[in-house]
Design a binder for these strands. Structure first.
Lengths: 185, 185
DNA sequence: GCTATTATTGGACTCAGTACAGTATTACAA
DNA sequence: TTGTAATACTGTACTGAGTCCAATAATAGC
C-alpha cells in the first residue's frame, strides 16, 4: 500500500528526503503506478483531510434548502467529520516535527483550504441569494474555512488524550459563525 | 528588472509555460541571479501581497499594547494597506485567466495566508493572555486572515473601477471580527 | 592602489511531474 | 476454452524547478 510505505519512510527519513522512487519501491510497484494513484507527493500527507472535504461536499449537496444557511452549514460540517476517529489524523499535522520541511507541507495543506472555501462560498451564495464572489460571502466562507483548519490543527496537536474531532470543529465554527449571523442576513 | 520581465512573459505565454531561464534571459541576468532575488518562481506572483504582510508585521509590532486586541488589529491592518494603490494588484489575482494554471498559482498564494495567520495568532495570543495554539485564538486568527484574503481577492477582481484596498479590508474585517468580540474576551 | 565584501555567474546535480507507447492483467462474452 | 475489450501496470525519455559549490566580477572602504 502506497500510503503505508510513504508514512514509514516519512517518519524514518523525513518528507523531503524521501523520494517517490523509494515510496514506490517499498510498496512494490513502479514509479509510474504511484502517479496513477496520487497526482503529487504531497497528496500523501493529506489523505484524511481530502476525504473530509469530499465528505463535506456531499453533505452540502444533501443539506436542506430551507433552513438558515449557517445552521445548515454547521450541520453539514458535523456530519462530515462525525466519524473521523483518533487514528485518522493527517500525517502532516502530527509528525511535522519529525519530518521537518514545515513550509512545503504547510503550503500543500493550504491548497486544501481553497477547495473547502469554494465549497462553502458556493453554498452560502446559493442560500443567501448573493453572488459567489461577493465580499461578504467570500469573507464569511474564508473565515469559516479558516476556523475549520484551526480545529483540525489543534485536534491533531492535542495528542493522545484528544476528544473527537467533531467537538473541536463545532467549537471553532461557533466562535466564528456567531457573529456572522447579523452581517449575512 | 526581474519582476517586469516575468510579468511580461506571464502575460504573453502564461505562467506555467514561462521558464525561469526565459525570465532571467529577458531581464539580462543569469539564471542563478534569479534565485538570489526570489526563492521560487511563484514568489513573482505575490510581490505586492508579501510586501503587505511585511508591512503588517511591522504595524503589529508598533501597535499599542493597551487598546483592545481586535481594535488594535484592525488599526494595524488599515495602516498596513492604506497606501496600496490601484497599480499594486498581485499579478496572480488579476491575470489568472490569462496565465491559466489556477491551481498552482492559488496554492502558492495560500502559503502567504499561513504567514499572516501566524502573525495575527501571535498578536492575539499576546494581547489576550492565551497560548498561541489555543483553539479560540487560532480560529479567530485563521478567520480574520481569511477575511483579509477575501478583501484582496474581491478588490483585485473588481477591475478598473475599484476603490482603495483599505475599504475592502475594513469591510471584510468588520464582518468577521464583530462577532468575535464576545468569544475572545 | 589594495583589500574585504558582496553580486553575479557557470556547471553539475537531484528529483517532481508529464507524456506516451508498450505490456500484463482482469473481466466478460461467445 | 478462446477471443476481446477494458483496465492496471511498467519502461523510457523528457522538461524544468530548485540546490550546491566553486569561481569570477564588481564595488565599497581604506
Amino acid at each position: 500500500m502506497l500510503e503505508d510505505a510513504a508514512a514509514e519512510l516519512f517518519l524514518e527519513t523525513g518528507y523531503a528526503a524521501t523520494t517517490i522512487d523509494q515510496i514506490a519501491q517499498r510498496a512494490g510497484v513502479s514509479r509510474n503506478t504511484f502517479f496513477n494513484y496520487f497526482a503529487a507527493k504531497s497528496d500523501l500527507l493529506w489523505v484524511e483531510l481530502d476525504a473530509g472535504i469530499d465528505r463535506l461536499a456531499v453533505e452540502l449537496q444533501n443539506a436542506p434548502a430551507d433552513s438558515p444557511a449557517l445552521a445548515a452549514l454547521h450541520e453539514a460540517i458535523v456530519r462530515a467529520v462525525r466519524e473521523i476517529g483518533v487514528d485518522r489524523v493527517p500525517l502532516a499535522l502530527t509528525q511535522d516535527d519529525v519530518m521537518e520541511t514545515r513550509e512545503e507541507t504547510r503550503s500543500s495543506g493550504l491548497a486544501r483550504l481553497a477547495r473547502r472555501s469554494d465549497l462553502i462560498a458556493d453554498f452560502l451564495a446559493g442560500h443567501l441569494g448573493r453572488p459567489a464572489d461577493d465580499l461578504l460571502v467570500l469573507s464569511a466562507a474564508n473565515a469559516l474555512s479558516g476556523a475549520i483548519s484551526a480545529a483540525w490543527t489543534v485536534w491533531a496537536r492535542d495528542g493522545i488524550g484528544r476528544g473527537p474531532l467533531v467537538d473541536y470543529m463545532s467549537a471553532a465554527f461557533t466562535v466564528v459563525s456567531s457573529g456572522l449571523d447579523h452581517s449575512l442576513s
